[in-house]
Design a protein around this nucleic acid. Structure first.
Lengths: 200, 200
DNA sequence: CGTAAAATAGCACGATCGTTCGTTCTATTG
DNA sequence: CAATAGAACGAACGATCGTGCTATTTTACG
């Protein structure tokens, strides 16, 4: 069926490692990743794991990238099948909430934002680029909703995108500490108020 | 003047260690704290530092507690001199924003929430207790504003407290990644809308 | 001043860290 | 079959980790 275009067979191993690393990073963050424990997870030697990435930092970058791809595939891609404008925006939020439910025990992207927002280096740059890109997607969706007349013409897209993001941060925060069910109720209520306050 | 009731002189050393540890934890989190580097910071031996806390975990708990005390002293205490109700609530938010400006490079309390929300143990419990306590203070302030007629009588205090907290999470997130000045503008705009939507 | 207690230093331990190196195994290719 | 490239292993490295122990120094008190 799906023939591997590149003959690389050991590339599947790399993917397997990233899968385990992703789960580890959800709990302990990218900074908590260690090649030794990771090697035990996948049943390989430390040097075997190490060879796939060349350095711990490159492993962390690969995990961050994998997390971003997962997020986009789970949140943005399904929402694109909803009609442009507010419906798609609502679909994005709905998928995002579902993502939050699946990641109550920790999200790699948000954890990474907290880990590297005060430092320098490739990981910081990657986090900023990832976050800026996602914010841009949000703003694009908002602009489409404005163009479709679903939101007020004078809607401040970056402002609304910020408030949406803030609510999702609140969801993740409260879900992790106080439980998802309570948090998602608050988020839904807040979003209804938010949409209403920007409706034309 | 202020005579030390307990004769402990070396207790000042403990405070000095906590001061350095607090600064370290702002960047690297409580999980990034190491007794070795901390000892170098304060110019002591590892064992000398270690003896003040008995274990790394107790050190982390002490830093977390110190951070909470600092937060309360900087945000809640000054706001208590403002009149009850909405003015005090606004004062809390204002002081909180100022706290956020001072901690653009990382806040121990928020970092800790992200580090331990998916784990078990004393640190998790301490974080939950700290966050629940602060949320309770917010709700108390909201209830007073409702009682004073500054907010609608049917105001859902936990809901409003959640939304306030979410905006502050947004401030910290955006300030760390995209700069404080841009973020604080968005937060101010969002808060004005928020107060208005709950006014009687 | 002398003495008990607290504070700090020094040293060592087992463990783990990221990384390097040389070797072995496997599979593809000519 | 022989040659070659890639993948994984195993051992070792220097460093650092948290944590015990035992001296030694410093402080507080009678």
């Amino acid at each position: 069926m799906t023939a591997t275009p590149t003959p690389a067979k050991g590339l599947a191993t790399r993917e397997l490692i990233l899968e385990h690393a992703y789960e580890r990073a959800r709990v302990g963050g990218l900074e908590g990743l260690s090649i030794g424990t990771l090697a035990t997870d996948v049943g390989m030697s430390k040097s075997g794991v190490f060879a796939h990435f060349g350095s711990r930092e490159d492993l962390q970058l690969a995990v961050l990238d994998a997390a971003a791809r997962r997020f986009m595939a789970h949140v943005l891609v399904p929402a694109l099948s909803a009609p442009r404008g507010l419906p798609r925006l609502r679909a994005i939020v709905a998928q995002w909430c579902e993502w939050g439910r699946m990641h109550t025990s920790g999200c790699v992207l948000l954890t990474a934002a907290g880990e590297y927002d005060g430092r320098e280096g490739p990981l910081h740059d990657a986090v900023v680029a990832q976050q800026a890109g996602w914010r841009g997607e949000l703003e694009k969706g908002i602009a489409q909703a404005v163009a479709a007349g679903h939101l007020r013409a004078d809607t401040d897209a970056p402002q609304l995108a910020f408030e949406i993001y803030a609510l999702m941060l609140g969801l993740h925060h409260d879900a992790g500490l106080f439980g998802f069910e309570q948090a998602i109720g608050r988020v839904h209520a807040a979003f209804e108020r938010l949409w209403r306050s920007w409706q034309p």
